[in-house]
Simulated scan of single mutants.
Amino acid sequence: MLPPLVFGLALLIVWDLAIRIGAVDTFYLPAPYDLAKYFVDEFLHGDLRDYTKETVWEALAGSGMGLGVALPLGYLIARSELAAAALEPYLAASQAVPAVALAPLFALWLGYGLLPIAVLCALLVFFPILVNTVLGLRSLDPDVMGAARVDGVGWWGMLWYIEFPLALPSILTGVRNGFTLSITGAVVGEFVMGGEGLGQLLSVQRQEADTIGLFSTLVMLALLAAGFYGVIRLVERLVQR
């Protein structure tokens, strides 16, 4: 915990010194104190909080959709050689298509609003969870699985009491990475398909050359991603106890 804090403090000191000695114009890089003051004012008294709520809702909706598809599909691929052979090439090829290229298609197919943005988020969330689910299930000790079958454990008991708990650390790693990416999906979706979240706010601030506003929104996005990451990381630690 200490090294990141020390690095962050050193970065802030260098940043502030660069502003004070005039090495960087504040039009391009606002001073840390000014940015912090602007951020707090916008969050408490401006529209930043409302934009943030919209982006969080889009990210959570997409994360839920991605998780709901990735877990059962990951189980199917891990347990069926036929399904793995049929699906894995297409899943791998799908990762070559950038999400921003799919956003206009989703707008055409699904219209505008929450649904297409949530679907875009789900695509980004889906793959890390799928991969880690497959890896977690395939890495289970075959001796443990065999002993459970000898003891007469059925399919549901095997899944719920043995496979899922043992694979859970790997699955949560995928969930942590995927949920963090959902913020990116929401912003990209809002860039292309509109909306009322932080991506839309970034578009407005860019058009107005509002540098300090852009930095403030970027800080909020970073905090959201760190928050998602931290919550899942906490769940991982609780599970590992």
Rank of each mutant, 00 (worst) to 15 (best):
P3D: 04
F7R: 05
G8F: 09
A10T: 13
L11S: 15
I13M: 07
I19L: 10
R20L: 11
V24Y: 02
P30Q: 02
Y33T: 14
Y38V: 15
F39S: 14
V40Q: 08
D41L: 14
L44H: 09
H45C: 09
H45A: 13
H45N: 12
Y51M: 09
Y51G: 06
V56T: 04
V56K: 07
V56I: 06
L60Y: 12
A61C: 15
G62N: 00
G62D: 02
G64L: 15
G66V: 02
G66H: 07
V69P: 15
L71N: 05
P72S: 07
L73T: 13
L73N: 11
G74V: 08
G74N: 04
L76G: 09
A78Y: 00
S80T: 12
E81V: 11
A84V: 01
A85L: 12
L87D: 06
E88S: 12
P89F: 02
Y90N: 10
L91Q: 02
L91V: 04
A93G: 13
A93W: 09
A96I: 06
A101Y: 00
F106K: 12
A107S: 12
A107E: 07
L108A: 11
W109V: 13
Y112G: 02
L114N: 13
P116C: 11
L120V: 03
A122P: 05
A122I: 12
L124T: 00
F127G: 07
P128K: 01
I129Q: 02
T133R: 06
L135M: 10
S139F: 03
S139I: 08
S139T: 06
L140Y: 11
P142R: 03
D143I: 08
D143Y: 09
V144S: 03
V150T: 02
V153K: 10
W155S: 10
W155I: 07
G157K: 00
G157R: 02
Y161K: 15
I162F: 10
E163T: 08
F164N: 03
L166G: 05
L166C: 09
L172P: 04
L172Y: 01
L172E: 04
S182R: 03
I183L: 15
T184H: 14
G185S: 03
A186D: 04
V187W: 00
V188I: 14
G195H: 05
E196C: 14
Q200T: 10
Q205G: 03
E208R: 15
A209D: 05
F215M: 15
L218N: 11
A222H: 00
A225T: 09
A226H: 08
G227E: 01
G227W: 04
R237F: 13
L238T: 15
R241M: 12
